[in-house]
């Protein structure tokens, strides 16, 4: 029986036999951790193989997730953006409803407190030009709305009805350049006329040079103009310029934010002027104050 041809490749045979002996030895020897050396060696080798494989798989997976898998992300992104927009719109709608509810609640409260015949109205339009500050309400003559009726809000006096139609009416805001309202200022109830100038500020005219007024004083309607009920807040004195013994300019910041008006009340009954000597005190709050308010 002759040895096979493997003798021609004794180097390979040597390697195989040597490795076989090493494996045989390893099966009998424990490593320092108590694990059989062969097991530790095989595990170590396979652990490295597994680590490398896991690295490759992780890389492939990362590449897939980072690039190939992003094919549908664009569509998802578009859909999500659309959903965000829808939700933002919905949120704004909810906020608007909440704000509207709050405004209505305040308006209802004002209506209850004022004890005047009023008609709630909603702003449905604004002036087409910036020079003339008017708004359109959804109440007209069919609702009892007439010209020169006062329009108020929870924050204070808004303006007056100038052009009523059957189902709508144009309201001139206090800040309109042609608007004017008789007012009283401060605890001394100094009389004057607040006039609009087309901007979000009022000029206070015809105030006596001896009047004791100060910056921050509350300006309320006096009622002597026959339009606005007495005691509604018009605004606060923002700036006073004196020249010698006379007033050069008194600026009043309106209490109503005319840019955010949504609901208002139209005072259906004409006001009754009580007079500055009336015991009623000017309102400190936005709505009518004092017992002199008339129904």
């Amino acid at each position: 029986m002759a040895l096979p041809d493997i003798r021609q490749r004794s180097g390979y045979l040597f390697l195989v036999v040597a490795v076989g002996h090493i494996i045989l030895i390893s099966t009998q020897v424990n490593s320092r951790s108590g694990v059989p050396l062969l097991q530790a060696f095989v595990f170590g080798v396979f652990a490295e193989v597994q680590r490398g494989t896991a690295g490759v798989v992780g890389g492939v997976r990362g590449a897939w997730d980072g690039y190939v898998g992003l094919r549908n992300v664009h569509a998802d992104n578009v859909a999500l953006k659309q959903r965000v927009r829808d939700l933002e719109v919905k949120l704004q709608r909810e906020r608007a409803l909440a704000g509207e509810s709050e405004n209505l609640r305040r308006l209802l409260d004002l209506r209850d407190r004022s004890r005047m015949p009023t008609r709630a109205a909603e702003i449905i339009g604004t002036s087409p030009t910036a020079d003339f500050r008017t708004v359109t309400i959804d109440r007209g003559t069919s609702d009892g709305v007439r010209a020169d009726m006062a329009v108020i809000s929870a924050s204070g006096a808004v303006g007056r009805v100038v052009t009523p139609s059957r189902h709508a009416a144009k309201v001139q805001l206090l800040v309109d350049r042609n608007a004017a309202v008789a007012v009283m200022v401060g605890a001394a109830r100094v009389q004057g006329i607040a006039m609009g100038n087309g901007e979000n500020v009022l000029r206070l005219e015809y105030v006596s040079s001896s009047a004791v007024i100060a910056k921050g004083d509350t300006v309320v309607t006096s009622g002597i103009d026959g339009i606005y009920p007495q005691g509604f807040v018009v605004g606060r004195i923002e700036e006073i310029e004196r020249a010698g013994g006379t007033f050069r300019a008194i600026r009043v910041r309106p209490a109503v934010d005319f840019t955010a008006l949504e609901q208002v009340l139209v005072v259906l009954a004409p006001p009754t002027f009580v007079g500055p000597e009336s015991p009623a005190a000017p309102a400190a709050g936005p709505g009518p104050a004092g017992p002199e308010r008339r129904e």
Binding site: F14, A18, H21, I22, L24, I25
Partner: peptide, 19 residues
């Protein structure tokens, strides 16, 4: 002793001697 140590030693020697 550990089976394989002597085998590996003599395998190496046999291979080298044969070479």
């Amino acid at each position: 002793g550990i089976v394989g140590i002597g085998g590996l030693g003599k395998t190496i020697v046999g291979y080298l001697a044969g070479v």
